[in-house]
């Protein structure tokens, strides 16, 4: 209990240095979480593997947070940590025939970091492009991305063809990509 207090006018604003560190990590991690995940996914473009790596990175980031220079970019630091984790992961999993590991990882990571501002703008443009989709297209996106079932499960449940769903999704992504390009091009012209 804080001692310098009388008559119930108790000041409880203090926190220990550990708490402050925790708070700082929480804020930074929360702010950059999606971008860190996206970064990992670009280096390990396999859903389950990327998920596993993201979980590992979360722990490692937390454990190494004392080493983080607060004057630097948390996101860039996190990506550096992630690259090391990806490298370790490759060593173990490279033999896998089913997973694709793009090389060189460091170069891809560096180029993605350099393109970060552009990617952020593209993410904003995507929101606008999504509104231009037809209802049936949004339904398919919801099933593929936002509901708790795989496309394969959906295809089995509806006795539909998984390949047909893949093809439809592919068309939607291509349309969205083209839409983003148009919007980015417009931005460039206006900006």
């Amino acid at each position: 209990m804080k001692t310098a207090a009388l008559g119930g006018d108790v000041d409880f604003n203090g926190t220990s240095s550990d708490d402050a560190r925790y708070e700082a990590f929480l804020e930074l991690f929360s702010r950059h979480r999606d971008r860190i995940f996206a970064h990992i996914f670009s280096l390990v473009p396999h859903e389950a593997d990327a998920e596993d790596l993201f979980q590992r990175c979360s722990i490692v980031l937390w454990r190494k947070f004392r080493e983080f220079d607060q004057s630097g970019s948390f996101y860039a630091w996190s990506c550096g940590v992630a690259v090391n984790e990806v490298r370790n992961f490759f060593k173990v999993r490279k033999r896998s025939r089913v997973s694709f590991f793009p090389e060189p990882v460091e170069l891809l990571s560096r180029e993605r970091l350099a393109d970060e501002e552009d990617l952020s703008l593209r993410a904003i443009a995507l929101q606008s492009c999504l509104q231009q989709l037809r209802e049936s297209e949004r339904d398919l996106l919801r099933i593929a991305y936002w509901e708790n079932q795989s496309l394969k499960e959906f295809a089995e449940k509806t006795e539909g063809s998984l390949q047909v769903l893949y093809n439809r999704l592919s068309k939607i992504r291509k349309r969205l990509y083209a839409c983003i390009e148009r919007k980015m091009s417009g931005e460039a012209h206006h900006g």
């Binding site: 996206a38 891809l108 393109d115 990617l119 593209r122 990509y177």
Partner: peptide
């Protein structure tokens, strides 16, 4: 990088 980011952003 852009195409995969589109996928993740979705």
């Amino acid at each position: 990088l852009r195409y995969l980011d589109l996928h993740v952003q979705l």
